[in-house]
Amino acid sequence: MNTSYAIGLDIGGTHITAAVINKTEMKVIDFSLYKESFDSNLPVEQVMDIWKRVINTSIENSKVTDITGLAVCMPGPFDYEKGICWIKDQSKYEHFYGLNVRDLLLESLNLSKDFPVLFENDAVCFGKGEVFKQQENLSKKVMAVTLGTGLGACFIDKGVSISSGNSVPADGEIYNLPYNEGIAEDYVSVRGLLSHYKSLKDAELNNGLELYNLALNGDQSAVKVFETMGEDLATVVIPWLNNFSADHIIIGGKIANASELFLSSFYKTLKESGVEVQVSISTDNEIAALLGAVSFLCD
């Protein structure tokens, strides 16, 4: 059997991770996983230089010479079919609005126009990758959510991503669902956590890690913020867990690393609503996202 390889990219608001994936075995090639943090609000040319460096470093480290495709996990709003970015007013990718990211990648990497480049929602990639990692999920209905600079979601029925129909929200997205005085992502995201903390302590924090460390060190306002987010997350997902008849919800993203601070309130809110569902925290979100992205090249 001929082995073919593709690049998987996990692109977020503050990081890019690349790896070379063996498409035949759906495994990450040793030493190819490479990541950099960066400011996505830099000028387009600078962002593309960072992406190019990360991709090339991954390929060099893998020792693979024949790459047959590029699969990209990308946050929305984004036209995944055409490769056009529609992110706006989200404190990330300020200069990418309306640009064709496929063309930018092909040009930056000096690839031919017909080189396969596929884009998919980061949460969908994460969910599909988790299904690959836990084969029993191939027989289940799984809702996956990613908690980070944004709030991502996907719905997977026996390994197939579902983004339309009455059982899921429009496009399978939950970040834009009306919630309290805004939308769900205003409350369940890094931005939501920091905003809530500021309302309690009148203190500006730079990032979620600062808040996490404060909570671990006993700052009760920081603890309260995470507990409230757990309640908010549960309140947002409960209607769709019920609608979709989900067997399993998988929580990933950077904020999932702080699960000990919000899981109890999440469980409590589920229980009070009479929802019974298996709950898992993903410990290697990026590997799942990369495998999930490349799986679409194999479909």
Rank of each mutant, 00 (worst) to 15 (best):
G172R: 03
L233G: 01
V237P: 11
I255F: 09
N207I: 05
L193T: 02
S163C: 02
F155Q: 01
D219I: 05
M229L: 06
D186P: 00
S265E: 08
D202R: 09
C154H: 01
A246S: 07
A288L: 04
G172F: 12
K254M: 09
G274W: 09
S282I: 04
I255R: 01
V237I: 14
D171V: 02
N217Q: 06
G230S: 01
L263A: 05
A256E: 06
A258W: 10
K198V: 02
L291V: 10
S221V: 08
L193Y: 07
N243W: 06
Q220M: 04
E260S: 14
S273V: 00
N257D: 14
L177A: 03
K158S: 10
A170H: 12
I287S: 08
E204S: 05
N257V: 07
S163R: 13
S282A: 15
K268R: 13
E272I: 06
C154R: 08
K158P: 03
I250Y: 09
A184M: 12
H248C: 10
K271G: 09
A258P: 09
Q220F: 07
H248L: 14
E260F: 14
I281K: 04
N180A: 11
I174K: 00
Q278V: 05
S164M: 04
K224A: 10
F262S: 11
N166S: 07
Y179D: 01
A184D: 04
L194S: 12
G182P: 11
G292H: 12
V237H: 10
L216K: 15
E204V: 12
D284N: 15
T235L: 11
N217D: 09
P169F: 09
L263F: 10
G274V: 03
S282L: 06
G252W: 15
L291N: 02
V223Y: 12
L233E: 10
G252M: 12
I281N: 04
L216R: 11
V275A: 15
N217T: 05
V190R: 14
G152Q: 01
Q220L: 08
I250G: 00
D219L: 10
N285T: 11
L290R: 08
F155D: 00
Q278N: 14
A256G: 06
F266A: 11
R191L: 07
L209N: 11
E173Y: 10
H196L: 12
I281P: 09
D247N: 14
Y179M: 02
A256W: 14
G253K: 11
L205I: 03
G159R: 05
E181L: 13
L261W: 11
